[in-house]
Write a protein that binds this DNA or RNA. Sequence first.
DNA 1: GTCTATAGCCGGATAGAC
DNA 2: GTCTATCCGGCTATAGAC
Lengths: 195, 195
Amino acid sequence: MPAPSTRDLIVKEADVLFYQSGFEATSFADIAAAVGISRGNFYHHFKTKDDILDAVIAHRMERTRAMLDRWQTENEGPRERILSFIHMLIANRSQIMNFGCPVGTLCSELAKLDHAAQVHATGIFGLFRDWLAVQIRALGAVDRAEVLALHLLAWSQGVAVLATAFKDEAFICNEVAGIEHWLESLPEGPRNSSN
Amino acid sequence: MPAPSTRDLIVKEADVLFYQSGFEATSFADIAAAVGISRGNFYHHFKTKDDILDAVIAHRMERTRAMLDRWQTENEGPRERILSFIHMLIANRSQIMNFGCPVGTLCSELAKLDHAAQVHATGIFGLFRDWLAVQIRALGAVDRAEVLALHLLAWSQGVAVLATAFKDEAFICNEVAGIEHWLESLPEGPRNSSN
DNA sequence: GTCTATAGCCGGATAGAC
DNA sequence: GTCTATCCGGCTATAGAC
């Protein structure tokens, strides 16, 4: 692995800061300080702040794709793969209680800013939705797979929002148990509606 | 009803702008322009921007309380009252697809800003949670009422986040139908777990 | 590729006339 | 109670030396 370029370092630090402080509240000075370079140097790598945002989103999409691929190969069946997704809520609970879900909060912020990159950011949700739909289809729920995938995604987002608001770890565990129970009920019933 | 004071107008316009553009992205100039006063005049009514935020949150709490009271008296039973809550997602779907849930997005933004008012804003969620718990208790789910109330709140938040991201009206309707189905199943089963 | 210096703008906040 | 004028600081972005 070669030494990371300055550009890569900028994207990496911007990624963290956009998550923890939000896109708009993060200034060039903040990123520069985190990377350890001067503010001026910056514009040699990115023309505008929006360019950094695009790079951060592209980076997150790449990481998401890699993570989904890993879950795909590391798990034996679709049920275990979906569990990997669900357990993110547990594994990242501290971060989620402090800053919410990186994807959901970014999409919401960009929507309010009426920012062109909002569609780009939503693409990350799309990756999860499509991957989950593949797994759910493999479970046997062929015709309603997309709807169920969106439902699972929405559920996890709701958990993230309330976890951030109330900082309640027990709530997260309760909901995760609920999601697991829902997952178990998925292929058996004759008509597994969205609850 | 007396003519609204300038202070009331500021709170009213700030309320809308904080919702549509976010707290940080809304400047004094924006609010002043919306109200039709000069920026300087502003500080006669509020010392700092944070003071306006506090007033906006207090105003939202008051409106929420009034709405919950109205739902309480306008509906015959707890089930119909909960339906009033659920149908907010339909009634406000345009706004939600553009700007998300006013409560959830504000809490998330304030969390990232590490803002002292975040606890205050979470109090609005608390109003909904407690009111929903009362209704669910009246349905017969006495011991798990609070957990189920939080679950319903989370579900609606998840719908709002994904609706904002994907701008998908059919998705909202699907999920609302799912919530209604979940509500119907509430008191009957011997063990209505969180799905 | 990285730096310093600085332009130009806009943010929140203040002072004081009317 | 509302206004104009203004301060100060931080912001994005640029210019140009090294």
